[in-house]
């Protein structure tokens, strides 16, 4: 598959911009390193498709689809995986938040009891 040279340059620039943004976000403490890995991998895979478009052709041949359809398919699966990952993270956060809130309520109850020992 032929990709025009200026398109490849654009993809390359995009990847480097993405990597730059991620590094800056980590530096500013706004992005956890754990999630940075996902985004760095994303940049890397875009970069690979950019400099080696035949990898896409290879996948297209395996799944027997037009390369554009393959591109959409790959992106779609990738996005689905990311969304699933985020849902898992949110669920875990939710559970921890719930437990924390319950512990706080419990501690507050105990504290009030200690403060007024005559209050049954």
């Amino acid at each position: 598959m032929e990709i025009a040279i200026h398109l490849r340059v654009l993809i390359g620039v995009l990847c480097f911009a993405l990597v730059g943004i991620i590094i800056e976000l980590i530096r500013q403490n706004r992005l956890k390193e754990h999630y940075a890995i996902i985004w760095l991998c994303t940049a890397l895979s875009i970069f690979i498709f950019g400099i080696w478009p035949d990898s896409l052709n290879l996948i297209s041949r395996i799944v027997q689809l037009h390369h554009l359809t393959t591109l959409f398919l790959v992106s779609f699966i990738f996005l689905l995986a990311i969304v699933l990952h985020f849902t898992l993270v949110i669920s875990q956060l939710f559970d921890r938040n719930r437990r924390l809130t319950q512990e706080v309520a419990w501690l507050r109850f105990e504290m009030e009891q200690l403060r007024q020992p005559d209050n049954d």
Partner: peptide, 27 residues
Amino acid sequence: SGAMVMTLPYNMGIGSAVQSGFLFAKE
């Protein structure tokens, strides 16, 4: 009315409220 009252800081929903009670019973 003489009951013990444990207050949750925000409305967590019936499930979490009841579980808080179970947590109390456990402790």
